[in-house]
């Protein structure tokens, strides 16, 4: 901490002046709504309140309502299962590809990298639209390919069965997540000094030993970051479900994010929707809080 000299105080004032505009914008647009989310969850807030701008506090009624609501628990279950599927899939596939990239021929590595960058930078709505097109009811290329392999496979609504529907939506999420995960892991892998691996090879280590005892332990912190971020992102997947199901998903597809959104904007129960959102944040914090704290400590 700076000594309380005039120079020190002037410097501090100067710093505050520099940070203030950014802080004001972030607090106004992100901080205030965070507080408001908590307040809303204790309020009766519907269309009338939206128009009049005043709301009545109703204690924990919103929360008792959602706890007694079977739909909420079903949505929570779907969200957890979906997150587990999407996170496992994207981390596992990203790791396989990252390790393969290290040993791949230069030309192929270059091409794969180019594709990863294209997928990574694509607008989310474009990405989802392509997959919706690939799995459309009448004109699906996937169904056509399956037929061309000799199977009887009529065109179908792929989303009638929610297990299959979530399987496809998860695939879209995994596909979109692979570039970031692969490139992060690949960057970390190439940072491992060559001597470590050479020394191990001289001592007779095979590829599996190197993977298990050198690469994996050294990359563990990166995995922790990537898994934590993936859990946070996949737990709140919304646009994929919303757009893949043409902006009106059936209740079979209500994850917590969709359910909170539908409760708020669909039936204008903003207070109740906020309570669901709060529950979502709490579950997420419970699952990742420890790792987030560790990440914050490390970056300080």
């Amino acid at each position: 901490m700076a000594a309380p000299t005039t120079e020190g105080r002037r410097q501090a004032l100067w710093s505050y002046a520099l940070v203030a505009p950014a802080i004001i914008v972030m607090l106004g647009v992100l901080g205030v709504p965070m507080v408001r989310l908590v307040l809303l969850s204790f309020q009766q807030y519907g269309i009338d309140e939206l128009i009049s701008g005043t709301a009545k506090y109703i204690g924990i009624a919103n929360f008792t309502a959602i706890v007694q609501d079977a739909e909420f628990w079903a949505a929570l279950r779907r969200t957890v299962l979906f997150t587990a599927y999407a996170v496992t899939g994207s981390i596992a596939l990203g790791a396989v590809l990252a390790h393969a990239l290290v040993r791949m021929s230069t030309v192929l590595r270059w091409v794969v990298n180019a594709i990863l960058i294209i997928v990574w930078s694509m607008p989310q709505l474009v990405a989802i639209s392509i997959w919706r097109w690939m799995f459309s009811f009448d004109f699906s290329i996937i169904a056509s390919v399956i037929r061309s392999l000799g199977f009887t496979f009529p065109n179908r609504d792929w989303f009638v069965n929610p297990v299959m529907g979530f399987g496809i939506i998860g695939l879209v999420v995994i596909w979109g997540a692979i570039p970031f995960i692969t490139i992060s892991l690949y960057a970390a892998l190439t940072q491992i000094p060559r001597d470590y691996i050479e020394a191990a090879q001289i001592d007779g280590a095979n590829r599996w030993h190197i993977l298990r005892h050198i690469q994996f332990p050294l990359l563990a912190p990166v995995y922790v970051i990537l898994i934590t971020l993936s859990v946070i992102w996949d737990f709140q997947v919304f646009s994929h479900i919303w757009v893949m199901l043409e902006f009106r998903p059936s209740p079979d597809y209500y994850t917590l994010a969709v359910y909170a959104f539908q409760t708020s904007f669909g039936i204008s129960q903003y207070g109740r929707g906020s309570a669901i959102a709060i529950a979502m944040v709490l579950v997420l914090l419970g699952a990742t809080g420890y790792y987030i704290r560790r990440m914050i400590k490390e970056t300080r």
């Binding site: 992100l30 709504p33 989310l37 919304f238 994010a257 904007f265 959102a277 987030i292």
Partner: peptide, 19 residues
């Protein structure tokens, strides 16, 4: 800065819209 990046967007949308 770190926390802000981790708050679920879908949770923030409701109060943000009202704000």
């Amino acid at each position: 800065i770190l926390i802000v990046q981790m708050v679920p967007l879908t949770a923030l949308i409701i109060p943000l819209f009202l704000q």
